[in-house]
């Protein structure tokens, strides 16, 4: 998904719960509002839901949610096993050009065919890097991701302070741990959005590290809960950090 402002990185917020929250985040500087739909999780019929924080939205509410942010880009995260042509058509009818698919597995061929038929591209989300994943990172290519619009990676969610770890790796150079240069090289090959542990102390430094780079954007994942595979922020903290990021990017 491209930013409206050429050369400026996109600020995306995932797992927005409703239109009120969406407008609050847009006012703070968000460029893209993400809603995560999963009816089976809401019906408590998902075998292993990624989240239990009540922030999923119903598929039936997608039109209202997308129309709640008419002047911004919205993106809906769909579970591949709940995708149907009707759902995709709803997204297209409401101006959507991209869907987000979370998880580490590729969508099955029938889902790819449905997406292609609907003319939608894909943001691959819900993937994360551990510090030692350099070899896998270096051979990662966009060719392996069908209908790729962007790849969203969480950077070191297994670290107490992922950004500090990334800075340390930058200082010590290439080695066992992924460095900022590794990420920027990947951004040169694949449209890349990064999620990292943002806070009031490091937001400016994070923006400075990536501003003007090939990185497509930064993402924030909303949740009151901690999650081993994501960096999460509550809505108020995200709202307070977005202006800092928006100014420096």
């Amino acid at each position: 998904m491209s930013s409206d402002t050429p050369g400026r990185m996109t600020l995306r917020v995932n797992r927005v719960k409703d239109g009120v929250e969406a407008r609050q985040l847009l006012a703070a500087g968000a460029d893209v509002i993400g809603f995560q739909s999963n009816d089976l999780a809401l019906f408590e019929l998902e075998a292993d839901p990624a989240w239990t924080d009540g922030r999923y939205v119903y598929a039936a509410d997608i039109p209202d949610l997308m129309s709640s942010v008419p002047h911004a880009q919205s993106i809906v995260d769909l579970p591949p096993d709940q995708i149907s042509p009707e759902t995709l058509q709803t997204i297209v009818d409401n101006g959507g050009t991209v869907v987000q698919l979370s998880g580490h597995n590729l969508p099955p061929p029938d889902v790819v065919a449905m997406l292609k038929e609907a003319g939608l591209r894909v943001v691959y989300s819900g993937r994360y890097l551990s510090p030692g994943d350099g070899p896998a990172l270096n051979r990662l290519s966009g060719d392996a991701l069908p209908l790729l619009d962007a790849l969203e990676l969480q950077v070191f969610p297994s670290e107490q302070d992922a950004f500090a770890r990334l800075q340390t790796a930058a200082d010590t150079g290439a080695g066992e741990v992924i460095t900022p240069d590794d990420l920027l090289q990947l951004a040169g090959r694949v449209p890349l959005v990064l999620g990292i542990n943002l806070n009031a102390q490091n937001a400016g430094d994070v923006a400075r590290m990536f501003a003007g780079s090939a990185l497509q954007g930064l993402s924030i994942t909303l949740s009151p809960d901690t999650h081993g595979a994501f960096h999460t922020l509550d809505t108020d903290t995200a709202t307070s950090l977005l202006p800092i990021l928006s100014e420096k990017l």
Binding site: D48, H104, S130, D133, A136, P157, S158, H227, G228, A229
Partner: peptide
């Protein structure tokens, strides 16, 4: 993903890392 480390790296000892959908 699996990482199998014989030791001697930044964590010093041997370990097996399993990357799961809920974290490491």
């Amino acid at each position: 993903k699996f990482e199998v480390h014989p030791g001697g790296g930044i964590h010093t000892a041997s370990y097996i890392r399993i990357s799961t959908n809920k974290g490491m």
